[in-house]
Amino acid sequence: MRERVPNPSQNCSGRPTDKGNANTAMNAAPTSTHNKAIGYILWIFGFTGSHRFYFGKPITGIIWLFTGGLFLIGWIVDLFLIPSMDRDADARYATGPYEYSVAWLLLTFLGIFGVHRFYQRKWLSAILYLLTGGGFLIGVIYDFCTLNGQIDELNRKPAQ
């Protein structure tokens, strides 16, 4: 009598397992929402906390802003923490039609004109930002603290 050799893709009962199936939840690679390269570019200005805002850490972003990157010590440490901040942001925020990196670049460089709000199709507030210099900068500061959440909310909405 011949001994039965189990197939590696089957369990003891002969049923197929998910081993080797790239589409399983355990084997699926997490979808990237944030870009490490942009995080490092923003880290150059890290004493302002910009990279921390980008990766969804507004409280420490504010602390870095007001303390010069935690007296430059935190700024140097963050050089090594960016990969983990990127992984955390990728796990926390949803992908969708709106790109986080695009919104952040628009906010960072054109925020007082409300271009990031136009990108999100928030027309009324975008025009208000355009006419008031980003809501007299108060709106821009608000958006630095909440932009990831705004984009996440838009990406989680069902397509209309």
Rank of each mutant, 00 (worst) to 15 (best):
W43L: 14
R4S: 07
I76T: 11
A25C: 07
I41M: 15
P6G: 13
S32Y: 00
D88C: 05
T60G: 02
T108F: 15
G20F: 00
G133C: 02
Y98K: 09
D86E: 15
L79R: 03
G46K: 10
G61E: 06
D143A: 01
M1W: 07
D86V: 07
S50Y: 10
T48H: 00
L131N: 01
R156W: 02
V102Y: 01
A22T: 05
K57Q: 14
P58I: 05
P158W: 12
N27F: 13
N155G: 06
T146H: 15
Q10L: 05
W123Y: 07
W104V: 00
G134M: 05
L106Q: 11
S125E: 15
L130C: 13
P83C: 08
N35W: 05
H34K: 14
F109S: 14
F45Q: 14
M26R: 08
T95R: 12
W64K: 05
G56Q: 10
R4P: 07
T33S: 06
I76Y: 11
K57A: 04
Q10G: 00
L130W: 11
D143N: 07
R121N: 11
P97R: 07
F71E: 02
Y40G: 01
A37F: 11
L137V: 13
V102D: 05
F109W: 09
F47Q: 07
L130D: 02
D86N: 12
N23P: 00
K157T: 12
F113G: 06
P8G: 03
V102G: 00
L110P: 09
G149H: 11
G139S: 04
H34Y: 01
S50A: 14
N155V: 00
W123L: 01
K19N: 10
G74V: 08
L42N: 01
V140I: 10
G69F: 04
S101Y: 08
M85R: 02
P58S: 08
I59V: 09
A37Q: 15
T67E: 06
D18K: 13
G14R: 11
A126E: 12
S9T: 04
S84L: 07
D86G: 04
F45E: 07
Y100D: 05
Y54F: 11
D143K: 06
A37T: 14
T48G: 03
P97G: 15
T17K: 13
I76K: 02
W43M: 09
V115A: 13
W123R: 03
Q150K: 05
Y40E: 03
A159P: 14
K122Q: 11
T24W: 10
A91M: 14
R121A: 12
I127H: 03
L70H: 00
Y98A: 03
S50T: 15
R121T: 09
Y142F: 13
V140H: 02
H34N: 06
Y98N: 06
L107R: 08
F118I: 04
L128I: 14
F80C: 09
I82E: 01
T95K: 11
H116V: 01
A91P: 08
S125N: 10
I73A: 05
Q120L: 12
G69N: 00
N148M: 02
F53I: 09
F45S: 15
E3G: 06
G135D: 09
L42A: 08
F113Y: 09
P158Q: 14
F45D: 08
R92V: 03
I82D: 07
G111I: 08
